[in-house]
């Protein structure tokens, strides 16, 4: 049965209030396709019945509410998605952090809206492959997502064959994964770099460590301007002064926040927090191990 206008409006308001994701009326097909499986899981015979259950307890903390909110988030992701952000991470961002924090020896990176973890583990592989000097640093890759199921998946580090086919260079597959039946498990030295927690970007934020680099890619596009502003304001506070923010290719801070400078590097760009001048470089001399490119991809 097609979704009634009344039910769509109720669902759109619920999703907006709980996740800040904006659902316009042309997204009715998306709502139906994503909520039909939820309806079956909770024993409802239709989305109309699912909406009735939700109306009885319209909070994200209810079983139905959390399932509806999770179903409406988009979990599209793959390893080394868009490639260029990881090129920038390798060639510019991590060398700068290493130069700046050689005495402190801590590195905090946030994969915000981490989905099933491919972005976080791509970051971990860049670090393992190219920055052996970080092996005696405290490296934290903080992964958060609104979906508990996605956070659990990130923590487990288990991927399907389709997922490991997407964007993951074969040399890294054989180096960092083991096959477990038809699935692939990422090795413990990478999962140990990753910390996971459930977090709603549009809600109250828990205490987070000061971040050197934030990956917030392909997330802001789902929010209205006010929510984007609020999130970027909080991201700027979480970043160290001069810290880097990476957005999706179609996203920008322009007309949303004045707290960032757009830095163009090669054929791509990132955003640098204006939070103040960069702290002076630590006196410790850091020597980078020469990197020899493998045959094949740059990772």
């Amino acid at each position: 049965m097609a979704l009634s206008s009344n039910d769509f409006t109720f669902l759109a308001n619920f999703v907006k209030n709980t996740t800040a994701i904006v659902l316009t009326p042309d997204k009715d097909y998306l709502v139906e396709s994503r909520l039909n499986p939820v309806a079956r899981r909770v024993g409802a015979t239709s989305i109309t019945e699912l909406v009735s259950k939700l109306r009885a307890n319209p909070t994200i903390n209810s079983e139905v509410g959390s399932m509806v909110a999770e179903a409406m988030t988009t979990n599209e992701t793959y390893f080394f998605r868009d490639v260029k952000p990881f090129d920038v991470l390798k060639s510019e961002l991590l060398p700068k952090v290493i130069e700046r924090k050689g005495a402190d020896r801590t590195l905090n990176i946030w994969s915000a809206a981490c989905s099933s973890g491919q972005e976080a583990y791509s970051i971990a592989m860049v670090i393992k492959e190219h920055f052996p000097m970080l092996s005696n640093w405290r490296v934290r890759i903080v992964c958060t997502d609104i979906s508990r199921a996605m956070v659990e998946r990130t923590k487990e580090g288990i991927f399907s064959q389709i997922e490991i086919n997407r964007g993951l260079p074969a040399p890294l597959l054989v180096k960092y994964f083991t096959k477990a039946g038809s699935e692939w498990k990422i090795k413990a030295d990478l999962t140990s770099m990753v910390e996971t927690s459930v977090m709603n970007l549009a809600g109250n934020w828990p205490m987070l460590p000061r971040m050197d680099i934030v990956f917030l890619r392909n997330v802001l596009i789902y929010f209205d301007l006010q929510t984007k502003r609020s999130i970027l304001e909080k991201v700027n506070k979480v970043l160290v002064p001069g810290g880097a923010l990476l957005l999706g290719g179609s996203e920008t801070t322009m007309n949303v926040s004045n707290d960032f400078d757009r830095i163009t590097t090669g054929s791509t760009f990132y955003y640098k927090s204006k939070g103040g001048p960069m702290p002076p470089a630590a006196p410790t001399q850091v020597t980078r191990t020469p990197y020899v490119a493998p045959r094949g991809s740059g990772y």
Partner: peptide
């Protein structure tokens, strides 16, 4: 996968594949 890489393959795709998978690997 390892055998192919050692023999000189630059990349490796497991069937079934999609256009996106081929495109993403070639982009790498």
């Amino acid at each position: 996968v390892l055998k192919a890489l050692e023999a000189g393959a630059n990349e490796y795709v497991m069937k079934p594949f999609t256009k996106d998978i081929i495109d993403e690997k070639l982009s790498l």
